[in-house]
């Protein structure tokens, strides 16, 4: 059957052709993204793989590329992300629960919502300036890993709140009504039905947010995170450095070997990120099965 025969649908052949062509275009664009990532990963792996060994993970930075490692940066990043998660997840989820389950519609709520949405788009360096003024100097935390974690928490809170709200919204209304019909208070409903139901979605948001935090450099440099540290932070008030800072520092060096080390650092950063993602998927999976 040709298009001309079917009078009700004009230009059918052209539409089919268009559809096919667009499909190919979208396919190509999708692959472009994947290809770019693959090329990037390949180049990084080729440059950095030779530097990756146990010593690289367990040595402090050094002016000799062969002796240099990322021990302090890796430890700093783990501390930073751990503390950031401890601070931002409870606060973020609590805020989302309040906004979705407890607050009444009104000017105040709209005001808060608009603010959170705007905060999500603020450049990270601005959070760095804020962190420097409030945490480092204001409360006098100094250039500690705690000050860094608080700054990072501010940075990712909007993302967590928005993701958690979406997840809570997606929990069917019938669940809430059922629980309340049986005499559960609002809190009991949230605690036993809404939160477990929303957990997979919340976890996804948390991981996305933490993944952003782990790669941030600008706010850390702003609050005065260090670049050369030959010790591992032993408490939240210790000075620290982080993987992105160490990587940045190495790429700026004139010696080629340091560029290799930077690539090695990137691989480690990616590995940490993947591990975090894997942990989140595992948790999500477990909760989904239990329900």
């Amino acid at each position: 059957m040709t298009a001309g025969e079917w009078r009700g649908v004009p230009n059918l052949a052209r539409r089919h052709w268009q559809s096919l062509w667009l499909r190919r275009l979208f396919q190509a664009l999708t692959w472009l993204g994947v290809m770019l990532l693959a090329i990037l990963l390949f180049r990084i792996a080729r440059q950095g793989a030779v530097w990756l060994d146990w010593d690289f993970l367990t040595s402090f930075p050094s002016r000799f590329p062969a002796r240099a490692g990322i021990k302090s940066a890796l430890a700093g990043t783990l501390w930073l992300i751990g503390l950031t998660a401890l601070i931002s997840v409870p606060v973020g989820v609590a805020a989302a629960v309040y906004l979705e389950e407890f607050s009444r519609a009104g000017r105040l709520k709209t005001f808060i919502e608009v603010n959170i949405a705007n905060l999500a788009g603020v450049p990270s360096i601005v959070y760095g300036i804020l962190g420097l003024a409030i945490f480092v100097r204001g409360i006098g935390l100094g250039r500690s890993v705690l000050a860094g974690a608080l700054t990072m928490s501010l940075l990712i809170l909007p993302v967590i709140i928005i993701a958690a709200r979406e997840a809570i919204k997606a929990v069917p209304q019938s669940l809430r009504q059922g629980a309340m019909a049986l005499g559960a208070t609002r809190w009991l409903t949230v605690r036993h039905h809404v939160l477990p139901g929303a957990l997979p979605g919340i976890m996804t948001g948390v991981i996305l947010a933490l993944s952003r935090a782990i790669g941030e450099t600008a706010p850390l440099i702003m609050i005065g995170a260090l670049s050369y540290v030959a010790f591992v932070p032993e408490g939240p008030m210790d000075g620290f450095t982080a993987l992105p800072i160490q990587i940045f520092n190495w790429t700026a060096r004139p010696q080629q070997e340091f560029h290799g080390l930077a690539a090695g650092g990137i691989i480690v950063l990616l590995a940490v990120l993947l591990l975090m993602n894997a942990a989140a998927v595992a948790v999500r999976h477990r909760f989904q099965r239990r329900r």
């Binding site: 995170a225 260090l226 670049s227 050369y228 540290v229 030959a230 010790f231």
Partner: peptide
């Protein structure tokens, strides 16, 4: 800093940029 801390293990040297 690297050399100094090899001699004086008790001292921490921190450098920012």
């Amino acid at each position: 800093g690297e050399e100094f801390q090899m001699l004086h293990r008790g001292v921490r040297v921190t450098v920012g940029i």
